[in-house]
Write a protein that binds this DNA or RNA. Structure first.
Lengths: 262, 262
DNA sequence: ACCGTTACGTTAACACCGTTTACCGTGAAT
DNA sequence: ATTCACGGTAAACGGTGTTAACGTAACGGT
């Protein structure tokens, strides 16, 4: 370990050397080139990425250990990029309207997924959990999940919807809720309010479920295009979030956004 | 076209000649060999299938037009085989207990999916809908979907749960419901009762969603193993099926089955 | 019973893939 | 100025889907 740079006190910034910056740059270029390939509907391969960068395939092995490692990296990057898109959608609503913010974000999630099915598959339909992955480990590609959790949390603060008591939860749920796998505001909650995490997971299951169903097309094509299945999912979940009164407005908001993006 | 066989009246059975039977046999052997490969966690490739059959890869092109066509065929076969498994699970309940039959079948669906993630992915996380697929076309690999529709229909006949009026449905939903993409008992319903199809689709979305989420592991691993997310989905949907009173019993039934299979 | 046609299988080859090996120039560090 | 790790290359191995050319055996009609 080169303690290299002078004038760097212990714990100071890593002081990236020229080599390191160069390396970091090509690292980023590799991932970015992969994104371009996906966007242009060509298949992602080491040779294709290398060729677009003016390199040869074996050179990439100086940066990634294997093809699947590249895929993991790309999936992480996609998740990040998509998340800023979701966040931007949320920001189209007023800051004091957390329900609208949540609805806009999840609607953007659906729009993005249906417009970028390859990317969606890479991030959300991948064998993310190896059997050897020990339980309780934080999930990868969780930036979007964290965003949705935060937005849901804001709704909770606004409506104060009912949340199950921690002691009433089944054992497995309680231990999972007390030690969340997704980073976010749950960690700051007092233990007796951690039931919120359970509602959050159920909501995520609803959202992921209907979007995956639509993306993979296991539903009537006409229904799919209209987005009514997605809208009905929102409408059905709204009451659990203390938004029974707001449901028509929120569904209209989502419907409008879907219509605008098609 | 050889009108070949003698004594074959018009419209009679195709009277399969020896060649045709032989062809059909190898056709089936190809698919069956593919299933074995999947079951043994080896990757499905034309060469691997051919080798196991004592043939060479190009010979398979006499039967399938391409690799992806083989995959489609295998997916169809998997769906069929899995469906008989789900039906067998349903038959473990009394014939006059349609709610239990439905719950056992969907629980078996989850168990199967988590035990055979490769097969599940092949059938349910595949680009089933090409952009050129015109709307209203019957879905492939719909045997399981049809089974669940039938079971749900039996529940409806028993409990008579509320179903939306056809004229109240959004346009896209109404046209889809009046001309269902999934074969099943909906076709026999009078038009004013076709709202059942909408409930059926919503239920399918719930089931598919939570199972896909669990299979692809985008949820806390401990939660996943316990199956509580799946159970809560059942509990949440039961009231919509007129099974509010029955919910605890049905959830207990599902929980018991999950515990037995792990 | 013969013959032509058709179906079914082979081998060889092409283009692509991930991955490993051996080699080598350049640039940073001592 | 020398050393040496880093970042690149070309060549090669085994694998994939796919096509072309070629043989052979079985069927159908006369």
């Amino acid at each position: 370990m080169p303690a290299s740079a002078p004038h760097s006190g212990p714990g100071a910034a890593p002081e990236p050397t020229r080599r390191e910056k160069q390396r970091e740059a090509t690292y980023a270029e590799i991932v970015e080139t992969s994104l371009v390939l996906l966007r242009e509907n060509e298949d992602l391969s080491l040779r294709a990425v290398a060729q677009r960068m003016g390199m040869t395939a074996p050179a990439l092995y100086r940066y990634v250990g294997s093809y699947s490692e590249l895929v993991d990296l790309v999936a992480l990057r996609i998740d990040q990029a998509a998340t800023v898109r979701f966040a931007a959608a949320a920001d189209e609503a007023a800051p004091d309207d957390p329900a609208a913010r949540l609805v806009l974000a999840v609607t953007e999630f659906r729009t993005w997924a249906m417009g970028s099915p390859r990317e969606f598959s890479l991030v959300f339909a991948h064998p993310v959990a190896e059997p050897g992955c020990r339980p309780g480990e934080p999930l990868t590609a969780a930036a979007s999940a964290e965003l949705f959790t935060v937005l849901l949390h804001d709704v909770w603060r606004a409506t104060g919807f009912a949340v199950p008591a921690v002691e009433d939860l089944p054992d497995a749920v309680r231990t999972a809720v007390l030690d969340p796998a997704i980073p976010g505001p749950q960690h700051l909650l007092p233990e007796h309010e951690r039931g919120f995490g359970w509602v959050s997971m159920q909501g995520w299951a609803q959202l992921y479920g209907v979007v995956a169903l639509e993306v993979f097309g296991h539903v009537d094509a006409r229904l799919l295009a209209s987005g009514e299945l997605f809208l009905s999912t929102i409408a059905r979940f709204a009451p659990d979030l203390g938004l029974a009164e707001d449901a028509p407005r929120l569904v209209a908001l989502a419907r409008e956004r879907i219509a605008a993006s098609s």
